[in-house]
Design a protein around this nucleic acid. Structure first.
Lengths: 148, 148
DNA sequence: GAGAAATCTATAAATTAAATAGAAATCTAT
DNA sequence: ATAGATTTCTATTTAATTTATAGATTTCTC
């Protein structure tokens, strides 16, 4: 399961992606609109900012805005910042690899091999989907184009 | 991330899948071989048994064996028993659906839509992979056929 | 300089995962 | 029948992680 942190992060990025040519959005506004605890969101936005996704400005008239184009922010990048690994087992992770505690022989582990395939399948979708795509999906859903 | 519970469950099923025509395996033997805490494994095997994957026999000469063919036990089934949902957000789950706490409008949620695609990609691999396949992968890896 | 807003660091609360414990039931073999 | 092996069941503890809160500080605008 995705952590709430990651879900909130994506929601915030989507909100900011819809706010492109407007003045920066304040934490409190995003928190209210998306029903996210404000202080928690504060931390999350800070992480996203430190990862280079957001631009922030303090003081009156300040707030957050995107530091990249919505097309350039991929779900896989966001998730790696907020949740860490994409793979379901540590030994199958590309960016957060570590050996399984109980592992006897990683090289011949069938579970690892299977979950490398799972990782690749997941990764494909997460790499193909940007914040712009998520916004596009919402637009489509609003005018009645359904995917489920 | 997969819980250790699920990883241990798959390991146990693989061990039992290699033990097909032999007498039942005892918990302690599986625990030792796979480096799994015995008492924890005990609970897991019980779950797998109650889910119909395993046959168990008490007393001397007792132990566990598979109750289905290794080809019939799919990773997706095991994971649903031990970890629950496959989807990364509850609102995208087929078997464990529930609404996200903070959700404003599920029908037009782009995050949900994207994670339905992720779910489908994951599901495809997990549905195509059985315990027999996992064992097959190990055999291939042992004789030098690599997939990474 | 006053007020608005982000920043930073720490900590508390809640939830979930992982592991342990021990008594009860069941089976085999003698 | 009984001894010993083994699973079964239920409860509890421990540990880890996630989620949320708190408050003092910095930076910015007007």
């Amino acid at each position: 399961m995705l952590s709430k942190k990651t879900k909130y992060a994506i929601k915030a990025l989507v909100a900011l992606g819809k706010n492109l040519d407007k003045p920066p959005m304040q934490i409190s506004k995003i928190a209210e609109e998306e029903h996210i605890p404000k202080k928690f969101l504060e931390q999350i936005l800070l992480d996203l900012r430190n990862a280079g996704f957001l631009y922030s400005k303090k003081g009156a008239g300040g707030g957050y805005s995107l530091n990249k184009k919505p097309e350039e922010i991929l779900l896989v990048h966001v998730m790696r910042v907020t949740d860490g690994p994409i793979a379901m087992v540590p030994c199958a992770s590309l960016n957060f690899y570590h050996k399984c505690d109980e592992c006897v022989d990683e090289k011949t582990c069938g579970i690892r091999s299977a979950f490398i395939d799972v990782r690749d399948a997941t990764l494909k979708v997460l790499t193909e989907t940007s914040i712009a795509d998520v916004i596009g999906r919402e637009d489509n859903l609003k005018i009645g184009i359904v995917n489920l």
